[in-house]
């Protein structure tokens, strides 16, 4: 499969990149690592007349400390670099499970946050789709995975996002009209055909990690069929902060991706103000996983929704326990 023809621009500054995107009126796409965009263009799933290559913009390739204590990761920083950020173990764990080592130094953090939703049908080649009725994600009016569905249920497949949502990270987005900050979870909507809330002309520039408070532990677990180079069946991340007594939960959060259309926070607030015990974790995880809502198996249709929901509960329970252990040793 070869790429369709397009023009390519390599701006040296963010302003120039934003101008180019603005002028292209929705016909341009941002190119960073290219590991998700270029295969999608080869499959004729995504079309673009202009690619704006942001890898030459120095400010987007750095990890820096901000005055408010947060860590700003440039969108074009490679995923492999994030495996070395130790402040939040959940994030380093998630980064080390993205694709494979070779793809991780090509792929970028911004690209992983904006990775396209996956589907067994959508991800087939342009050849396969030729002459067939197109699905919602290809601009048509039907879903091959859920034939009675009225919307696309392709699966949110980023490994980093659940960790970032649980941590409470934010992203910085810039456009010609200025910059805005939003919580990572607000980058997504529950529509597999248009899963991101970025407007045309906007560039995700930085991911902002809050400082890790004292007595805080975090953990991430990915279930996939292979240890490398596989998209998740289920990803779960959890964060637990302990009060000064070292026993009572001060704050807790968790999130899931892989079997959902948009990365979803899981409600584990019931832990807060209570002394953590293993049976309390069992109880809370069992309840919290119900908030997953619609469970999609579009990413891999041979793994049914019931199993995915059950395994999400197990992974949530395990990641809470790991986060708790780390919090006690923090």
């Amino acid at each position: 499969m070869r790429l369709p023809p397009f023009e390519c621009a390599s701006p040296a500054s963010l302003e120039e990149a934003i101008n180019l995107l603005g002028q292209a009126a929705g016909q341009a796409r941002v190119l960073a690592g290219g590991t998700d965009l270029l295969p999608a263009m080869k499959r004729r799933g995504i079309a673009a007349g202009l690619l704006v290559n942001i890898k030459g913009i120095a400010g987007l390739k750095q990890v820096s400390a901000r005055e408010d204590g947060s860590t700003a990761i440039g969108a074009a920083v490679s995923v492999n670099e994030v495996t070395g950020l130790t402040a939040w173990p959940a994030l380093a764990q998630a980064a080390s499970r993205v694709a494979a080592w070779t793809l991780r130094h090509m792929g970028t953090v911004g690209g992983n946050l904006l990775v396209d939703n996956r589907c067994w049908y959508y991800n087939r080649s342009g050849e396969w789709w030729r002459g067939k009725e197109q699905c919602f994600k290809r601009g048509g009016e039907r879903c091959y995975v859920f034939p009675s569905g009225r919307q696309c249920r392709a699966a949110a497949s980023s490994d980093l996002v659940p960790a970032l949502v649980a941590i409470g990270a934010r992203v910085e987005v810039q456009s010609a009209s200025g910059s805005r900050l939003l919580a990572v979870k607000d980058l997504y909507r529950a529509d597999g055909a248009a899963p991101h809330t970025l407007e045309p002309g906007e560039i995700l520039t930085h991911i902002l990690l809050p400082p890790c408070p004292a007595g805080t532990g975090s953990a991430f677990i990915k279930l996939a069929r292979r240890q490398t180079l596989d998209f998740a069946l289920v990803n779960v991340a959890a964060v637990i902060s302990l009060a000064e007594d070292g026993r009572t939960c001060r704050e807790a959060s968790a999130a899931v991706s892989g079997s959902v259309v948009a990365p979803t926070p899981l409600p584990v607030k019931q832990l807060e103000g209570r002394e953590i015990t293993t049976w309390l974790l069992d109880e809370v995880a069992g309840e919290a996983v119900k908030a997953m809502g619609f469970v999609t198996y579009a990413g891999a249709m041979d793994v049914p929704a019931g199993y995915r929901r059950q395994v999400a509960g197990v992974l949530l329970r395990r990641s809470l326990e790991q986060a708790w252990e780390r919090a006690r040793n923090a």
């Binding site: 590991t35 793809l103 130094h105 090509m106």
Partner: peptide, 12 residues
């Protein structure tokens, strides 16, 4: 570094 040359634009 090893890269997948099918996913790198020659101009890049």
């Amino acid at each position: 570094k090893p890269v997948l040359s099918c996913l790198v634009l020659a101009a890049d």
